[in-house]
Design a binder for these strands. Structure first.
Lengths: 199, 199
DNA sequence: TGGATTACAATACGACTGTATGAAATCACA
DNA sequence: TGTGATTTCATACAGTCGTATTGTAATCCA
């Protein structure tokens, strides 16, 4: 067959992500990924010698995609808008991000039992917290933040709120609508960035 | 062997939970659970005809244990103390709850792909939200809550914050200490229940 | 005391798993 | 137009999976 490859590694990691989004991480096997990519199982082995290598590459790619989308956000203008845009990216507000979050949740649930997965997760987490912290620090400097805001601590809390809302909306969709999670997030933001006059 | 059973169903579900806590949900097989329970695989089949039945029973048991521990909390005195105690139960502040949370996270990550698991999760979620909402409503009635508190909406947000902190601490333990998640949670509580005088 | 029943254990079976191996196919280049 | 390197496929293998079936020991009821 061609000396120039017909398939790229990204085709395989993307196929894995599709399998996870559709049927869960348990449905991932070398053969199911190969089928989703439209190639043979041997081709998958050629690019990824072990299943773990494929798994880690796919997880890395998911994280990269999220980071890339965050980097594509409009420039940091008003701190509140920036922080809000960042956090909204974490919520399953459309079907595409819902699928992506299912993948992220599946991987992260496996992280506590896999050192490599845990490292990938931690790196992504640190990136998120840093961005939020920068936004909050800028808000404090501009005097538009609530008086008792601590950028680091409140970045941790805000990230947890958004991710927690996403988690709950994903796992209990009949108990929590998309509108509700946005309202809950905005309530949190209103306390970090007092809307009217405050204290 | 004895007509009086040597093992109970709970022995098997508990064994499954131990396997999940130690090696993850993927490590769960009829045989691994049997080994953890110290019985034969046949015995497991005798009590649970399918693996799914065993899985669901174990998940149910995990939820029951959490609900039972919440019900054992000291009576609802000051709303803030009640809500705080409820939310602290969700955090991995000791090794026992950390293990339990790993189990809960593993199950919930599978919920979006399994209707029965999703129903169990949703039921537990509704219970939690109801309890938090009651606490917040009482705070509003007593006038100890921040002025803009909406019990339902803020119950959703507070539950998300606590669960999100737990999630992050579990998956990125090197980036987030136990002290930090408590501080972040308390910051959130301070905004729901203003400590000094407010507005 | 003797079946009938309960509570397991042991085994068997087909499907699927990850991975190793070797052959086949295709391109770049001489 | 071969030739050799690279890419892909096909197959094989040992192991594990869930589950069905069968066997057996202990107990209760009569």
């Amino acid at each position: 067959m061609p000396r120039r490859p017909r398939i790229a590694e990204a085709d395989l990691t993307d196929a894995l992500v599709r399998v996870v989004a559709g049927e869960g991480l348990d449905a991932v096997s070398v053969r199911s990924v190969a089928r989703a990519a439209g190639v043979s199982a041997g081709a998958v082995q050629y690019y990824f010698p072990t299943k773990d290598a494929l798994l880690h590459a796919a997880y890395r790619r998911v994280i990269e995609r999220v980071v890339a989308r965050a980097a594509r956000l409009p420039p940091l203008t008003r701190p509140r808008d920036f922080v809000r845009a960042l956090l909204l990216e974490l919520l399953p507000l459309d079907d595409e991000r819902e699928a992506e979050l299912r993948v992220g949740l599946a991987f992260s649930a496996r992280s506590p039992f896999s050192e490599p997965l845990a490292e990938l997760y931690t790196e992504g987490y640190r990136t998120l917290i840093s961005a939020l912290e920068a936004g909050l620090r800028m808000a404090v400097d501009q005097g538009v933040a609530a008086p008792e805001v601590d950028p680091r601590r409140d970045a941790v809390a805000a990230a947890a709120t958004a991710d927690g809302l996403a988690w709950h909306a994903l796992c209990a969709p009949t108990a929590l609508s998309r509108d509700e999670i946005v309202r809950a997030l905005d309530a949190h933001l209103d306390r970090l960035f007092p809307p009217a006059g405050e204290h």
